[in-house]
Amino acid sequence: MIQMHAFYIFLIAAGLLIAAFLYVALSTRNAREINMQSAYGLRKLLFFVVLAVLVLGIGMTLGKTPYPKANELPGKVVFVVGKQFSFALSDTPITNDQDYEARTYGIPVQVPAGSLTEFRVMSFDVNHSFAVYSPDDHLLAQTQAMPGYVNRLRVRFDQPGRYYVLCLELCGMGHHRMRGVFDVN
């Protein structure tokens, strides 16, 4: 899971930093003059190491964005509207409040497992965040729901089951109870 990988990287890097600070703090017990040239040399080395790590990080991750790619086509489209305080999902466009009400309480949209699904997400009022949680409650994918824009989120669902949608952008007093639902089968 990507969250755990990121966490391990964080722990390792933070651990190295803490170790360096601890080492330096303890070194003050034996005060002595330091060779500035050695320090500058070490800084130069650090510069190249950090630059290499950052460039490697950029190289490995910059191509893996969640934005729709031209070389892939979804198999299904789901229309989503966020509004204070619920998400409505539908197989057909939700164009007005009546559609929104009907789809908020309607039977969950069915999404096929294994095929790429495109969520076309927008909002009727304020910013929301359409965040898809897997049946085992991990944040799988998200995009912002905004008035005036349609964000297209493409996700492939391998695991069948009921998926819940939570709102991850503060949208008012009902922010924490705002949700949507769909089924993958």
């Binding site: 031209a70 008035p147 005036g148 824009y149 964000n151 297209r152």
Partner: peptide, 11 residues
């Protein structure tokens, strides 16, 4: 068809 689409719509 080029992989882009118009994301904005008139409010």
């Amino acid at each position: 068809l080029r992989g882009k689409f118009v994301a904005s719509y008139a409010l």
